[in-house]
Design a protein around this nucleic acid. Structure first.
Lengths: 334, 334
DNA sequence: AAAATAAATTGAACCGGTTCAATTTCCTGT
DNA sequence: ACAGGAAATTGAACCGGTTCAATTTATTTT
């Protein structure tokens, strides 16, 4: 059915190796043969079998991308960046979602390895349990780049300065006179969320303040979680004067809840997010994260390693997070 | 470096074929051998090479997904659905984005084929030029499913009843008394946009009305395009009383433009969208599209074909679009 | 015109699996 | 103890490429 190199060999009366050589632009072939091969390949619509090629060359021209959830704008934008760079290199990307499950993450990485990807980009879940699977990658000297560093693992990574982002919003709120601040954190598996929370706590405590447990929420992930947090806040007799959401999606959920109950932002409560997603139309004060650029950087770093060989020194790239002041934070009457 | 089946054979003193057989759960092996093989594989951490396996079995356990833009929530949600079903089948998905370019679309499909994917899901761009590459797939009897049917191509597809969606919004607007309606269409390569526009025109003309050219915009794709359209409308002395946007992202852009200029929706202009994206917090009257379900349906249909063989009759699945009335459309003072 | 050198082409082995006919080993019944 | 049949194991060919030493062909040189 499918045309193979041997078929072409038969048709042109040349040897397999000749066909292969010409098709791979190796030199040492006469112009005549070259033309004959090229012509035949063109005419019969020969499509090389990358699987077979991969088997002998060990290069599959394929990279794996393991993220948490493609439906989240943060990851879809990052993915776009990765894809674009991969395309430039003639690479195709395997997309895997861990769906926030540690076991799935391991499985997906395993699947990528058995498919012999040339390299991996992983946005690992943070788990108490173990990073064995990542250390394994290193031990096997599979080229890989992480989104976010992993303690003790001397690997390439791209990360955002989430701690600093958290610092910036918190200080901004303090400057505007807020003293009672709430925090809607993400899943405990999110490094970004943890860092932001930690920064917030640090800054507050440096000012002699603290996050009150009843104003601290955990596990927010989707819009619906934000809505729920919003509802809870509405139901409270006493509320923080400002709420930091660990990402824009959650913030949007809170906005939605507030809107439907007629609670006004920032008059009745100030609100901030993280990511600065494109689809935001609410004038949310947030922290912008260069997701798309990070995706590109991840891919570029990975290719650096793939082509540079195992002795390429690990690269660490940190992107800054930048406060974007809009109008969801009011100056609090102290 | 990597452990192969031959290595295991050497270590256990058995034949390659025995190792392979046991690992693939074929029967006809003694319990003793079976254990010996399994044990060794486990102990030395054997990972099968899917590339090699793919070469001889012709099954790569891989499908290709070619979409336009992963950063668009419509596609990222659809992708999530595809991925989830693929995962159930132990398949991994290659993600390709055409970035709205017809040539890239062809290339990506080609790349997938040379990687010998077991099947393809394609959201094809609509182009005057040609669907040759899709007809080719059929000719080569590569299993594939399209998002949206292609005229003359008798293939499996999943689509939305975009015409009916367009009908619904338009009628809704007419019922609410709107007579001067604008339309912000997408790229001409979008089937959905075309169908919706066509429906709108049909309904209007059935009521003796028409879309005025100056209220009809083309090529809207991202939020920024919506913003621009919004600005243009603001600058007009005379405006339509309602604007149908071909998707929520564009609608969001219009909302953004209006908000910044203080133009009120729906008081000064009514607005509708399509998709009913999760991140919508603006009470936009829109048409909901079961993107995620469509992704799952696409994948399931594809697997039906992959496992059912070439004689599987083409499946056509049409998902309904449903008007979701919120509060961005007012009853017009005629 | 023969020898030396350079250029072009080829054949066989290999990558890591799968497959299946052929062979070997193990039981069973007599 | 042995023939016969069933069960277990094996070896070789194959999938479709790449690689490279060896061979063949062409071109120079003397």
């Amino acid at each position: 059915m499918k045309l193979t190199i041997s078929d072409l060999a038969k048709m042109t009366g040349l040897a397999k190796s000749t066909i292969s050589g010409v098709l791979n632009n190796k030199d040492g072939f006469s112009e005549k043969t070259r033309q004959k091969v090229l012509q035949a390949a063109e005419q019969y619509g020969y499509v090389p079998n990358e699987i077979a090629r991969g088997l002998s060359t060990k290069y599959t021209k394929t990279i794996g991308l393991v993220i948490k959830d493609i439906a989240n704008p943060f990851y879809s934008k990052l993915t776009k960046g990765v894809q674009e760079v991969a395309g430039e290199y003639g690479y195709t990307v395997f997309l895997c979602s861990s769906f926030e499950d540690h076991h799935t993450e391991k499985e997906q990485i395993q699947a990528m390895l058995s498919r012999r990807v040339d390299g991996l980009i992983v946005a690992p879940l943070l788990e108490e349990v173990t990073f064995d699977h990542l250390f394994d990658l290193k031990a096997k000297s599979v080229p890989f780049v992480l989104l976010g560093s992993v303690p003790g693992l001397d690997s390439s990574y791209v990360e955002f300065d989430d701690y600093d982002g958290g610092r910036q919003v918190t200080e901004h709120l303090l400057e505007r006179g807020h003293r009672s601040i709430g925090f809607a954190a993400g899943l405990p598996t999110s490094r970004a969320s943890r860092e932001r929370l930690r920064a917030c706590r640090d800054v507050l405590s440096a000012h002699g303040l603290a996050l009150r447990p009843e104003f601290t929420f955990e596990g927010a992930q989707e819009l619906a979680d934000g809505v729920e947090i919003g509802r809870k806040l509405i139901a409270m007799k006493e509320r923080p004067s400002a709420l930091i959401c660990f990402d824009d999606v959650v913030a949007l959920g809170v906005v939605k809840a507030f809107q439907s109950e007629g609670l006004r932002i920032p008059e009745e409560m100030s609100l901030t997010g993280f990511d600065d997603i494109d689809l935001m139309i609410f004038p949310l004060t947030t922290v912008s994260i260069p997701t798309y650029e990070a995706g590109k950087a991840l891919a570029r770093t990975l290719f650096g390693r793939i082509f540079g060989g195992p002795d390429t020194p690990p690269q660490r790239i940190v992107f800054d997070e930048k406060l974007v002041v809009r109008s969801s934070v009011r100056t609090a009457a102290n």
